[in-house]
Nucleic acid binder design. Structure first.
Lengths: 334, 334
DNA sequence: GGCTATAACGTTACCGCTAACGTTTTGCCT
DNA sequence: AGGCAAAACGTTAGCGGTAACGTTATAGCC
């Protein structure tokens, strides 16, 4: 691997001049700069980020922590990658292992030793984030509201969930079941709250038995739906706290010999890519992933640049995506 | 962030002794070691990997390069993460952006500046890997056979695809369509070759029109299936080169007003988690992801340890997973 | 032409850690 | 007790880059 020293030697300048040239910093004449760039290019010089980071420089790398195996998170991560590349940053991902395991404090440190900042997407809410406040590492969170030592980006879960219930009610459904998410997350609690609020506001059927506990996972959705279907008076429509749960629910509904949407309307949340591709395509609430990713990256970059923004919460709007799984009660498709 | 120097100072030893202690290397008395470890733990010391790497040490970090958005790859990546953690390594992932973009030579460099070695899962075959041979970076590839400067791990695609065709033939299908994968990958070519071989070996219907071009993506599978269904004599069963294509095909089949499996049997390849959860559950060929991941990690660790293994190719067996999408021709489920 | 401000470039020190080698202590043997 | 090898520990140098400051050229002005 060619080093900056070699570039400098060939160019006949000091290492520092070469550094200034490749980093596009002032203090180098245009002639010299061009020459250095040419040489760097020629011998295939790439900056050593470990060295950059160690000596207090910037690596133009951002780290992301999240659970890759949840459809929504991995989709979000990809969007963050695009957003980062768009502003000439690269992204490195640390995939959290299953449940709770190992409070990832050192994981943030790990990424911070390499990257300029970290975007954290936790599958649950914990106060461990708060402990990182003092470490003065640029951190932005997504989907976390409770501990706000950091700037955070979040979709308007409450408004989105209201949209979902409203849509079902508009279609004539009076008895709507709800599959909760992982309530350790604010997003899950917001969606539930919206469901409850709308239910009373629109004079729909109430009852705790219409709220079935899920966990944002497919299996949880499957089992939650099964419980709803086993009710003495089952609902005519189900609102699942996320798309993945909705997929699980769909399996349960079909196993019970019912059809979606003819016998049971179904609506999800997130609008992951799979939602559109399923058959029937899932009606759902879209989270503005590209915007969320851009917002998070911008926030992080601002922090890296030292604009220690007062920890703000950016809320992005959600949107109803009407597809095929929710229809008029008792009606046929169309 | 506490440094090794601080630990050493508190313990009243030299930095080097502290280094030996925390790295569990000989040359420290047990008493001293325990004391150092205690202190390190107390003040929350974590090794700075950038510094470790820079000074020629090992970071106990492996890098992975792959396309996160393809179901199979991300599943594989997660398995690599587990395998790595099992041997006390951490994993960092670089997600390749869409198609071909930017020959990721510098990406490997990037990861190599941080990690001890890199596992590469390319979405296509290119000779750029060959150029990395001289750089003497520990690299292991998965699903690449063509350029073998490095050790590689691969599933037995040929045998697996034969299994798939055999299964359909056993169910009485004589006219089997095939949706190809991205033929820039050896795995796709192997599966196609197996299909062709079995077709003549078992005296099934031949014909180029039964081979429909896909790309391992959902949309490609959808369109490929559409073409098969539009044939004058459509097949009675479809073998898709991977599960994702099979999902696409399923959508196409249903849009044509046909049922899976009653009117059209379908079999996939990979056995990604979704395959089991779909309705009906997808019959498919399983790639042994955990084993592949372990093999790749072991290979990489061997290279890191300096056991410059002659570039070997480890082939792992595939397995037929019978579920619900392939049944006897003209038959009902069961 | 001499003085000074500025651009251009170089030196030094250091980031946190490890390899290699040097020094001290310890334990053991005769 | 003296001698010596091995264990325990310390010192030095350097990985590849950057910040901070020092030095040399260039230019501008009276």
């Amino acid at each position: 691997m060619p080093t900056l020293a070699e570039v400098a030697k060939i160019a006949g300048v000091s290492i520092m001049t070469a550094s200034r040239a490749v980093n596009n910093r002032p203090g180098v004449s245009e002639r010299t700069r061009d020459e250095i760039m040419r040489i760097a290019d020629e011998i295939g010089y790439v900056a050593n980020r470990a060295a950059q980071k160690l000596s207090g420089g910037q690596t133009h790398l951002i780290g992301v922590i999240g659970q890759l195996y949840t459809g929504f998170t991995s989709e979000l991560v990809l969007n963050i990658g695009s957003a980062a590349r768009a502003v000439d940053y690269e992204m490195l991902v640390y995939s959290l292992p299953a449940e709770n395991r190992s409070p990832p404090g050192n994981v943030v440190d790990l990424l911070n030793q390499v990257a300029d900042g970290v975007i954290v997407i936790l599958p649950y809410e914990s106060d461990y984030l708060a402990t990182l406040t003092r470490s003065h590492i640029p951190i932005v969170t997504i989907d976390q509201t409770k501990p706000d030592p950091f700037p955070a980006v979040i979709a308007d879960n409450y408004a989105g969930a209201r949209l979902a219930v409203q849509h079902l009610a508009d279609l004539g459904h009076k008895r709507i079941g709800f599959i909760t998410g992982n309530e350790r997350l604010a997003s899950a609690r917001d969606r539930r709250r919206a469901y409850c609020d709308m239910r009373s506001q629109l004079n729909l059927d109430q009852g705790d038995d219409l709220i079935s506990k899920g966990d944002f996972q497919q299996k949880g959705g499957y089992e939650a739906a099964k419980r709803l279907l086993a009710l003495k008076r089952p609902p005519t429509a189900i609102f699942a706290a996320n798309d993945v749960s909705a997929f699980g629910a769909m399996t349960a509904i079909r196993q019970a010999g019912l059809r979606v949407p003819e016998d049971m309307s179904l609506i999800g949340f997130d609008d992951i890519p799979l939602a559109a591709q399923l058959h029937p395509a899932l009606t759902t609430i879209r989270q503005p992933l590209p915007q969320m990713a851009r917002a998070a990256v911008n926030l992080l970059l601002a922090m890296i640049a030292g604009i220690d923004a007062p920890s703000q919460l950016i809320t992005l709007p959600t949107q109803l995506i009407v597809r095929e799984t929710a229809i008029k009660i008792g009606g046929r498709v169309g």
